[in-house]
Amino acid sequence: MSTVDDSVRELLLLMPRLVGRAKKLPVPAELRSFALAPRHITLLAYLLFDGPLTVNELAARLEIAPTTASLMVGELSRQGVLQRTECPVDRRRTIVTITDDHRPAVERWLSAGANAWRKALAPLTREQRELFVGTLRAYQEAVCEG
């Protein structure tokens, strides 16, 4: 079994390659003109995997202020990537979804990463997957703390 320092070394060598490969995933031609940033990818992934959400739900999941989420949604709505509709139950709430025109391109774009994660995580038990995801979250929090 490796020491913590051995594991740290492996991860420090592995992470730049993972990030580099993720950055090389080609943006579908239909989405290239939108200048999508990583924050947009996360927003689109939530909408793709979780379905239509309110702006406040998106803000909570993205861990950003509702005003910031609203600005992002507004930007992508003006470009035709997202659609905002009034909630039929509470007209004060806005429901956000990916437009039908752009959903196939978003699905193609995110499916490569999703399929790679499925392949990597499938052999693990539920507990092992939870440990792995929890470890990545803890790493992200530690990096953000500085």
Rank of each mutant, 00 (worst) to 15 (best):
R108S: 10
V133Y: 01
A60S: 14
A65S: 14
T99P: 08
A120G: 00
L47E: 02
L124P: 02
D90N: 08
P38F: 00
R84P: 03
R129C: 00
I41V: 15
A22F: 09
R78A: 15
R108E: 11
P66G: 03
I95E: 14
A37G: 07
L136P: 05
E107V: 05
W109G: 02
P104C: 02
I41W: 07
I41F: 06
L18T: 09
M15P: 00
Q83T: 10
P66W: 10
V81C: 07
L14M: 04
I64W: 06
R84M: 11
A120K: 08
L12G: 07
A138I: 05
G51V: 02
R93C: 01
R9A: 03
R17T: 13
L131T: 11
H102M: 10
E127C: 01
R39H: 12
D50W: 05
S70N: 15
N115T: 13
A69N: 06
G74C: 11
F132K: 09
G74A: 07
E10L: 05
L53Y: 02
E30R: 12
H40C: 08
V96R: 01
Q83C: 10
K23D: 14
A22N: 12
E127D: 06
V133W: 02
R21N: 12
Q140P: 05
H102D: 03
V106S: 06
R103P: 01
D90W: 00
L62Q: 09
D100A: 13
L25F: 08
L44T: 06
L31C: 11
Q140C: 13
V143Q: 14
Y139I: 15
G146E: 09
G134F: 00
L82E: 09
P88M: 03
G134Q: 01
P26I: 01
R78M: 11
K23H: 13
L11P: 00
Q140G: 12
V27M: 15
L14I: 00
L11M: 09
D5S: 14
K119P: 01
I95M: 15
G113F: 04
Y139Q: 12
A120S: 07
V89W: 05
A142M: 12
G113A: 04
Q83M: 07
P88W: 03
V19Y: 04
L44F: 02
W109M: 11
E107Q: 13
L121V: 02
F49S: 13
L136R: 06
V55W: 00
P88F: 12
A112F: 11
G20N: 14
V143C: 06
T99A: 05
R92K: 07
T42F: 10
K24G: 12
M72T: 07
A114H: 12
R93V: 08
T67P: 04
E130M: 05
G20A: 10
T125N: 01
S7F: 08
N56R: 15
V81N: 04
